[in-house]
């Protein structure tokens, strides 16, 4: 499937990148690594724009933003500055460069309540433990956001998206071709959209929120714990649906059910509304163990 293939390509390029970094470690001196530190107030905004190379960002317990950046060549430099309660970090090409010479690897530590905005082209992004708003846009870079309870918005062209342990927020994940995996993601509004990318959800759709997982041709796979409290509808136009999860038939069916193309029902109190939609893909709901 297209989504899978893309992901393995990306993880291969990440591995190659790591190997390359190791090989270079002997020659690259510590002077190549730049470090910037900024003291910020509550609710600071940190933005990072980096076409190539990874961006790893994690929350720390202090009110300081620490940026360490490793440029891959003298053709790029790092432009970092603080403006009030905003810290902006941007890779600056001194000359026209490509993916090899234009690469900068970033490692950032930010206060736990910071808001974060990241834009990359092919660079992978990892964001951990941030409690403010997280917004990530990437072309083909893999995006991984975990352990957050703020608003999270991720959009990619083909880059795979992984979301882990997100709570109470407003979660929006959109990829045209990349797969979207959600593990223990709950919130007031959780919305996932893809064209060809597969969507995989495992968790309990907690919190009485509104969940919508939609793909045009990608498959949607949901593993639901028995304690889940959901009011679920699933429907495909030309694809197929399969359900192995025990659902009570809806009291007031809101849509005409047609065999093999849709199903609906509730489980427990039916607190969260869950909508699964695909045009030509397959939807499968099963019980997780």
């Amino acid at each position: 499937m297209a989504g899978r293939q893309k992901m393995s390509n990306t993880s291969r390029s990440v591995t190659l990148g790591l190997l390359a970094a190791l090989a270079l470690a002997a020659t690259a001196s510590a002077a190549d690594k730049k470090e910037f530190r900024y003291t910020v107030a509550r609710g600071a905004t940190i933005s990072v724009v980096n076409d190539y190379g990874s961006v790893r960002l994690r929350a720390s317990g202090v009110s300081q933003v620490v940026v360490s950046a490793t440029p891959s060549s003298s053709k790029v430099e790092v432009d970092a500055a603080q403006n009030g309660n905003r810290v902006e970090v941007r890779t600056h090409f001194l000359r026209k460069t490509g993916e090899n010479d234009g690469r900068v690897e970033y490692d950032l530590q930010v206060p736990a309540d910071a808001n974060v905005m990241i834009r990359t082209a092919s660079g992978p992004v990892q964001v951990r433990g941030v409690g403010g708003d997280v917004s990530v846009d990437a072309d083909t870079g893999q995006v991984d956001v975990r352990d957050s309870n703020g608003h999270v918005r991720v959009r990619t062209v083909g880059g795979p998206i992984t979301l882990n342990n997100l709570k109470d927020g407003f979660v929006e994940a959109t990829s045209v071709g990349g797969p979207v995996m959600l593990n223990n993601v709950a919130g007031r509004v959780v919305s996932v959209n893809t064209t060809g990318g597969a969507i995989v959800y495992s968790g309990d759709f907690g919190g009485g929120g509104q969940y919508s997982l939609t793909s045009h041709s990608g498959n949607i796979d949901v593993s639901l714990s028995a304690s889940a409290s959901v009011d679920l509808t699933a429907r495909t136009v030309t694809g197929t649906v399969e359900n192995d999860f025990p659902l009570q038939a809806p009291v007031h069916p809101i849509m005409a059910l047609s065999q093999g193309k849709s199903f609906a029902g509730t489980s427990n109190a039916g607190a969260s509304a869950v909508r699964l939609r695909t045009f030509s893909g397959r939807i499968r709901v099963k019980k997780s163990h």
Partner: peptide, 12 residues
Amino acid sequence: IDRLNLERAIES
């Protein structure tokens, strides 16, 4: 001038 320089200058 690049975008970021200009944005910052405008901000100040």
